[in-house]
């Protein structure tokens, strides 16, 4: 037993020495290749940070895209969840990561254009501090009512002429913003009751704890189909194909287009060739049948635009929302 151990130890020592000798040589090679061009990208597995918990829409989107994109890059794209502060924790980590394209993040739009309305300026994340690789998809919100409330349309709420309670998926979320805007435009006296994410909010509507709530389409759909909750309006810009028979808030006469959007983002300063290569890889992913099926199943609308276009969308949204919030004097922190 002892002798065998010693032999192992000796071989191990030899191996370590060999490795130490070999290392400087290796390093030199890598350096040479790096200075030639960027064609060596990617030279190892890619990390895709997700600022949300596993199992949610954002996490699933990341996983659905990571697999086919990785196949095109011929490297694994690993999804790593770093939940916290609606993705601000992951965004901070991304900002500190090496800008070589091996660390990416699945960025949620609300972090860029809704959270800044709720938190102090120094905590707000600015999307311009990052390199956008590609847009992914948009997730619409639908206003659903508990059967106990008896509401079938927004007009019913207005006509009811009473103070209502609305559930949100959290303070400073799209769910909160969409309803705050709607009810202040409709001059309905309404109290926001924030819950901790989509599922608890849905539970509250189902149980009639709140009158209405704004929930992402994919989450609300099974309950709508089963007739457990009533859809009133969607907050989409135009009717989503998945719920073509439900009017948008704009059609109902209220200026509240609120959507969740998702994009793949790299640290600032990532070389253009690398960003382009990644964009091609995700482009391949968008053609993947399984990825498309995922979008259909989760009722996500593809928004597979280039980085510049996405930046325009998101900074535009932030401006619009800021103006609307000021106009209707909505306090996004609290109510």
């Amino acid at each position: 037993m002892h002798t065998r151990l010693r032999v192992h130890r000796r071989t191990a020592t030899v191996a370590v020495i060999a490795a130490v000798i070999a290392l400087p040589g290796c390093g030199g090679n890598v350096g040479d290749e790096g200075s030639k061009d960027q064609t060596s990208f990617p030279d190892r597995a890619i990390t895709l940070l997700v600022g949300q918990d596993p199992g949610g829409s954002t996490d699933l989107t990341a996983r659905a895209a990571a697999k086919p994109a990785g196949a095109d890059l011929d490297e694994t794209v690993t999804v790593v969840n770093k939940p916290g502060a609606n993705g601000a924790v992951a965004a901070k980590e991304l900002a500190g990561a090496k800008a070589d394209g091996h660390t990416l993040m699945l960025f949620v739009g609300s972090l860029a254009y809704i959270t800044p309305l709720a938190v102090s300026a120094d905590e707000a994340v600015d999307i311009n501090d990052y390199e956008v690789v590609t847009g992914l998809s948009q997730d619409d919100y639908v206003l659903v009512a508990s059967p106990k409330s008896g509401f079938k349309t927004v007009k019913d709420i207005v006509d009811a002429d009473r103070s209502i309670k609305y559930g949100t998926t959290g303070v400073g979320t799209g769910s909160h913003l969409s309803q705050a805007l709607l009810f202040s435009q409709a001059k309905v006296k309404a109290t926001a009751v924030p819950f901790d994410g989509g599922a608890p909010t849905l539970t509250a509507v189902l149980g009639g704890q709140v009158d209405v709530a704004s929930i992402q389409l994919g989450e609300a759909q099974p309950q709508i189909k089963a007739g457990k909750i009533t859809p009133l309006v969607t907050f989409a810009e135009k009717r989503p194909t998945y719920m073509a028979d439900i009017p948008t808030a704009v059609e109902a006469g209220y200026d509240v287009p609120v959507q969740q959007s998702r994009a793949v983002v790299a640290p600032k300063g990532t070389p253009k060739e690398v960003v382009d290569r990644l964009r091609t890889a995700f482009g391949k992913a968008f053609e993947d049948k399984k990825y498309q099926d995922f979008n259909t199943q989760r009722l996500l609308t593809p928004n597979e635009v280039e980085g510049a276009e996405l930046l325009k969308q998101w900074t535009g949204s932030l401006k619009t929302y800021r103006a609307l919030v000021d106009k209707y004097r909505i306090d996004m922190s609290g109510n």
Partner: peptide, 15 residues
């Protein structure tokens, strides 16, 4: 929540 996600990936919507 994660098992819920796994069902979704499998194409089954829990409801």
């Amino acid at each position: 929540a994660v098992i819920f996600g796994a069902l979704l990936i499998q194409g089954v919507t829990p409801g």
